[in-house]
Amino acid sequence: MTWATGVGSMPGDDQRDYDEALRTVLGELPDLAHLPEVPGRGAPAGMTGRGLAVMADLGADLQPAGWRLTDAPGIDHRRARSLLAQDLDALEEQAQGYAGTFKVQVAGPWTLAATVEKPRGDKVLSDSGARRELAQALAEGVRDHIRDLRRRLPSVDRLVVQVDEPSLAAVLAARIPTASGFGRHRTVHPPEASEHLEWVLGAIADEGAEPWVHSCAPETPWQLLRGAGARGLSVDLDLMTAHDHDVLAEALDAGETVALGVVPSLDPERAPTETEVTERVMRWLDLVGLDPTTNGGSLVLTATCGLAGASPSWTAQALRLIAAGARNLS
């Protein structure tokens, strides 16, 4: 069976929009639904704010320059945690009896290190001790998050945690700007990058959940992510290189999950048909020499990235298209 799911973010700017996004996801993606993110509600609901809400032990606050670590949670950090709890309450109410596979998303350690500042300024990325502490706090927070989700969704037997790492490629290539904007942070070497990811992905696996990694950035090191413990890779098919295709084919052949982004995440001038979506996936499988009848069970269809910038009508249509494409491939 081929599956369909969303990457995570959905359009909207208030709680009613979140409730509607949740209804849409549960209705259109009954086999692999996900916890929607509605970042239009403000920084506490964005990817970084949601990641800090999950993180254990460390405090943070929102400054004019962005999120910064602090000795104790500031008002915006408390708001991020409260909003996450509120969203989970809504999920628990709407998803009573849901028994399919369920997915949640959290910002990864390197994306957080590249976007959050140390208490005295400059990114966490600039300090090896600070980035280690942040990654370990995230790993511990993810454990608590998974336990809370299992309590709220007792009928779900397969839980997926998608770690979002859109900044990983830039971290490895020394493309993250310093606070002044005139320089770039030094590259992080692959062994350290892998180690920090292993802490987070290992914590997910230790709790009996399935660790995926998503990135819609070019040059994402998919082989490194597999080596760090990712058992699912969520990719934008338009950004794949020949080497990436080989890595994804190896992952599928090994029984790991590949989530292919095949539907635009923004309103297109002309929407693809479900036949075109299906045929595009079939061409890719043929390109990498895989058979949908034997490898389709590990294949998931998604939009190319999050849908926060799309219109509500295209969002619903995009989810219907990937669901129809998954049914056709099955």
Rank of each mutant, 00 (worst) to 15 (best):
V263Y: 13
W67G: 10
A60E: 13
A99L: 04
A228W: 08
P73I: 05
S311H: 08
L29K: 07
E256L: 14
P64Q: 09
M240E: 13
L88D: 10
L83A: 00
V38C: 02
G74I: 07
A135K: 05
A60H: 09
V213G: 04
S215W: 11
H185T: 03
A254G: 12
G100A: 06
P211Q: 02
D89C: 07
V277R: 08
R147N: 08
D13W: 07
R120Y: 14
G255K: 14
T278P: 00
P312M: 05
R283I: 06
D236F: 04
G309P: 03
W199P: 03
L32W: 10
P292N: 01
D19W: 05
M55G: 01
E93S: 10
R16C: 00
G12E: 03
D31K: 01
D76F: 13
P119Q: 12
R16A: 15
H77T: 09
A251V: 04
E269L: 15
D19V: 01
P218F: 05
A53L: 12
C216R: 02
G100V: 01
M47I: 14
A169C: 06
A203R: 06
A326G: 09
I322V: 15
D236I: 00
I146D: 02
R23D: 11
R150K: 15
E165S: 09
G59R: 06
W222M: 09
H243N: 05
V142N: 01
E210W: 15
G227V: 00
M1V: 15
E140M: 13
S126W: 11
L301T: 03
D122S: 14
V171M: 03
A85I: 08
S194V: 12
D164I: 04
V262Q: 05
L22A: 02
N295H: 15
W67F: 11
E198I: 00
H77F: 12
E140F: 06
Q136D: 07
E198Y: 07
A135N: 04
R175V: 00
